[in-house]
Write a protein that binds this DNA or RNA. Structure first.
Lengths: 194, 194
DNA sequence: GATTCAAGCTGAGGCATCCTCAGGATGTCA
DNA sequence: TGACATCCTGAGGATGCCTCAGCTTGAATC
């Protein structure tokens, strides 16, 4: 809509930084417990801050989600680069996919936000999602070049599969988490026959 | 929680039936446009009815969703039975899976509700979901018996795969719908090698 | 047709949440 | 210490959820 997505930045003043950090910590906890649609007023209150302060630092819910998950996704991107340097491209891809599914389902509702951010510039998480897309695409390409993954699989399709797995994991209850098996079956479908 | 799920039933009095139908029609349209979390007050207003009347007929949002999707899911179950009588078990399973994905993603948010209903009695849609589970399981079993699908795939896993595909479809935009390809890749993973 | 009453309808109102904004407080820098 | 940009506050309008006390009406009975 805007073309210029808002990315929350750490404020300069000491009290501002304090509150920014407190809000972020409260948000992580709240998202973990109540999902991405946790009450923002609760988060503000947990952070010991008025609601207006929360909105000052994070003008939209999406910007707060972005800030709360940035570290994890940065790690994921960094790990992709490290894995790309390894010897076994298929193993690297699989390892990364497993990790990605876990990150995508850090809390309920996150996959949906990420899936939208992936193709919607003008979204706080878009930058990070693009980086992830590149990282995943590189690993995929390498595995394909090694003849270990079907050559007609596109990065977009890979992320659909990962998102699907993450969504299943999101829905899971402690006694029923089919996401690992889901990924296993998916891998069965995309790796080339021995 | 309750153990006794509320299933909306068509009321007896003429004005009751009229309103029930009007609310259902408005709900279908609203869900289609705004997803499963469409405003109930809007729906009531569109149906030309006070909000209290909506709640009289459909005490919970879940019960309204259930009523709005019952027909489609009934058809899906019926189709499973018809397909089971056909000659080619694998073809039957695939056809049904495609259809299921479409039904599961009738509107945004439905898959999530169905996925929860599947294993949570005390949910309006649970009955229909169980019937669907049985129908899908029968088709799966037949395809496995014919040696066309890996024998270690369970019905629960099948529904995870279907739900994942439906979720992807739910997220899709007109220019980007990867659900068909998703299903294709999944089938690659669960069918036995020629 | 009149009577009766269970079934049905209404919409105000309490509560939660979102988000804004005018006015006040305060950290920082010179 | 003064000046001011930055930051904070919380009341308040808007929306949506859901309930309930009081009223209306369809339909069964006489």
């Amino acid at each position: 809509m805007d073309g210029k997505p808002y990315i929350a930045q750490r404020p300069k003043r000491a009290d501002g930084r304090r509150n920014y950090d407190a809000i972020l910590a409260a948000a992580r906890k709240a998202f973990e417990g109540a999902g991405a649609d946790a009450s923002l007023e609760d988060i503000a209150s947990q952070a010991g801050v008025a609601i207006g302060t929360l909105y000052r630092h994070f003008p939209t819910r999406a910007s707060l989600v972005e800030a709360a998950t940035r570290d994890g996704l940065e790690n994921l991107v960094a790990h992709a680069e490290r894995l790309a340097a390894g010897p076994d491209p298929l193993d690297a891809l699989i390892t990364w996919m497993r990790e990605a599914v876990v990150h995508f389902s850090t809390f309920r509702g996150l996959v949906g936000i990420l899936a939208q951010s992936m193709y919607d510039e003008g979204t706080p998480s878009h930058t990070m999602c693009s980086a992830m897309h590149r990282g995943g695409a590189d690993l995929l390409r390498a595995a394909q070049a090694a003849g270990r993954v079907r050559p007609d699989l596109t990065p977009d399709e890979l992320f659909d599969l990962l998102s699907g797995a993450a969504w299943v994991r999101e829905q899971a209850t402690p006694d029923r988490d089919g996401s690992a098996r889901f990924l296993e079956l998916v891998l069965e479908g995309i790796t080339t026959r021995d």
